[in-house]
Design a protein around this nucleic acid. Structure first.
Ligand code: MN
Ligand code: MN
Ligand code: ZN
Ligand code: ZN
Lengths: 144, 144
DNA sequence: GCATTTTTGCAATATTGTTGCAAAAATATA
DNA sequence: TATATTTTTGCAACAATATTGCAAAAATGC
């Protein structure tokens, strides 16, 4: 017997709150993020949905979620982008994710270190920062 | 009359020092980096060489330069990777680039802030960091 | 339930990245 | 300088990733 997803009505609310229609693909992709302990790449989502949804739908869903402030992007050095849930009060076009990200080079998991704030840096005169990201690589607590 | 590239013999030396054959493509791509005030993406290099070299050659050259510690990669959030010259004493497989990068959201230039060191952060117990990168976005000194 | 709006899937196309291999170029050797 | 050896390049074929227009399907609002 299947264990039904716990938070389906939460997902409804989250989507509604952001002015989005509630659809199968959006609920499923949201669920993947809530059930995952790390960040997800586009490819991960395709795998985990068993190709139930068109690639294009996945691209558009991720883009929509980023725009709405439901997920945020994590920069990487390998021509890919990772996505993770926004934990705090991110909004349409205005993210507040200023935590450090940790990518394990052994198990490839990515962790949002929600309690580790990206430190301030003093920039040379003339530079006006708006966002800052910090990505740390190494061995995670499982892999060291 | 053309002004000849100033540093051609420097380029020779740099390549030789790294055990690389001196070829037209490598000299030209090196020159692009030295003449550029910012970081370059693969696409930039293709444009600026007027397709004189095969795409594959550009890919391989960038990869080789990274391996040798001549250039370093800058993570981005848009499915691309930026490359910039290593200013310090980077070596084969061991980079020492720990400076902050600034990407201007207006002119799209990327700056290596060589004098701004990526600050230390205290990670949760169990995480062993090996590398850390910091990317700041905003308006650069020209665009603010 | 029905009209309207939004989202999806498909197809076509574009862009980006990889691999094997023979020709060409660069380097080492004499 | 000529020749042997090593390295690099370009091509072709292919694979993977991403974007767009548009009609069908689904979701929403009434
Ligand atoms: Mn995060
Ligand atoms: Mn740099
Ligand atoms: Zn790990
Ligand atoms: Zn600028």
């Amino acid at each position: 017997m299947e264990i039904p997803p716990i938070n389906m009505s939460e997902y409804n609310d989250l989507l509604k709150k952001n002015g989005l229609s509630v659809t199968e693909s959006r609920k499923k992709i949201l669920d993947l993020f809530f059930e995952s302990d790390g960040a997800l790449a586009h490819a991960d989502i395709e795998k985990n949905t068993d190709a139930a949804f068109d690639r294009v739908t996945v691209y558009r869903t991720l883009q929509t979620f980023v725009e709405k402030g439901i997920i945020h992007q994590i920069p990487t050095t390998d021509n890919s982008v990772l996505y993770a849930l926004c934990k705090h009060n991110c909004e349409q076009g205005h993210h507040h994710d200023n935590h450090v990200h940790f990518i394990c080079t052994h198990c490839d998991k990515t962790f949002c270190l929600d309690d580790v704030t990206v430190p301030e840096v003093k920039l040379p005169a003339g530079f006006s920062p708006s966002q800052k990201a910090m990505v740390v690589t190494g061995f995670c607590k499982e892999c060291r």
